[in-house]
Structure formats: C-alpha cells, structure tokens
Amino acid sequence: MEKELIGKVALVTGGTKGIGRAIAERLSQAGAIVVVTARSRPIETQTKHHFIAADLTISSETDKVVNEVNEKFGSIDILVNNMGGSASPSGGFAALTDEHWENDLQLNLQSAVRIDRAILPQMVEKKSGVIIHISSITGTLPVYQSLGGYAVAKAALNNYSKSLSKEFSPKGIRVATVSPGMVQTDTMDAYVQSLADTSGLSIEQVTQNLMDSLGGIPLGRMALPEEIAELVVFLVSPRASYITGVNYIIDGGSNPSL
C-alpha cells in the first residue's frame, strides 16, 4: 500500500466501529498518524490509533479533543467527521418528538459544525487541510418510514459541507462529502438480526427487504466498510487535489436519479 499520507495527522470522529474504524485503519495504512474519538473506549483495545473519549454532542468536549490532539501531535491535517446515527423510532413523522429531532441534529450536524469550527483556524493558518463529512444516501433519498430525522440532518450536513467548501476552498482547504448507501457494519448486522428475530424471516429475506426499501441496489449487495474507507482515503490524498465541494455517492447504484 502506498504511504501517501506520511507525516499527516488525521482525526476520525466515531472511529472505533463500523465505517469510522475502517477509515481510521486505512488512513493508518497510508502512513497517517490517526486519532479516533468515541464516547466509550473500544472493548477490544486492538486500536493502535490514539483514542480520545469524547461525547461530541457536548460543546466543551470538542475543545478538549482538539487541544489534546494539538498538544500530542501538532496541528490537524485531515478531519473526517464520521460520527452520526440516530436513536429515533421508526413509524414516520408523528413518531418523532422535539427531542428526537434535536438529538438527530446534534449527532449528525452540529457535532460536525463545532469540530470544524475548532479546527479550521489551524488549517487556514497553514493554507492546507482536508475536511470530509460522512453523510448518507438518505440525505438525497428520503425514506419516511424510518430515519426521518436522520435523513433531514444529513441533507442539512450536505448543504453545510457545500457552503463550507465555498468559503474555505479559496484558502487552500478542501471540503467534501461522502454519502454511503447501505453498509454492512456490525450495527447493520445486529439490526438485520433483530428484524429477522421479530419477523421470523431469514437474514437473507430481511436484507433483501431492506435493499428493496431503497428501490433496490443494482450491485445486489451492501457495501463493506472498507469500500467506503477507500473513497475517503482517495479524497484526503494528494490524488484528489482538485476535488472540493462535492458530494460523492457510494451506493452500488441505489440512488435512482441522475
């Protein structure tokens, strides 16, 4: 593997599981010094990355993370805003309370806004840096039965990321969004298992139903976390030096529109 990121300091939020862990791993293979955050320390302390426990939905925790990275490793070159998700119930519009909306926005939008705000000044000073926002295909392909608040927050994140790129690309900082389709993370596996348990259907049938709910996936399978990580590493590398302000969809063809 080409060591194209040697000497670079990368921060991956939500970097202990799923897509975030795959991104951290791949950045590290490319030679970067990788710092990961999550609310709790990973159970398997396999992580050779530097770990900082932080709840980034809390404002003061953001500064703590940035200060710690700066003290130990210097300024941050690569920021991957990967954390996100939703604990809101399915069942459509009426099932979502104010609190669900607020939680979805905190987790998927405001946490990224805050950490960008904390880190951008050091990138501006160096006139270099790359910021990635991990969004979701639901940000452009809404599904109302579940993930309503999450999808709206991701759409907001897409808009915010584009806006940020317009402001900071002239200053040497690239900002890009990656929108994965369905990804076979541990969380997804557990979700599929629970759906199978409650419905009495097989894992394969539940998986197929989930893919069908997106209107079908032409490639006929979910993504592996590593496939998302490859795109992210491409984007933060010098190979992507003219790429900013984009939202790259990586979904096996799921999005039905042009």
């Binding site: 592996l224 003219y242 984009v246 790259y248």
Partner: peptide, 27 residues
Amino acid sequence: EIANMVAFLVSDGASYITGANMLVDGG
C-alpha cells in the same frame, strides 16, 4: 488531476461505486 479520479474509479478500491457521476471541478 482528472486522470487520478479515473484511475481510482477503475481500480478495485472503487468496487462499490457504480452509476455515479463524479465531479472534479475545484468546487
């Protein structure tokens, strides 16, 4: 810079990318 994107897309690293239209336009 355009060639780099094409080289990525045709590699195995892009195995989940199909039906996409990748802008390379400096924003």
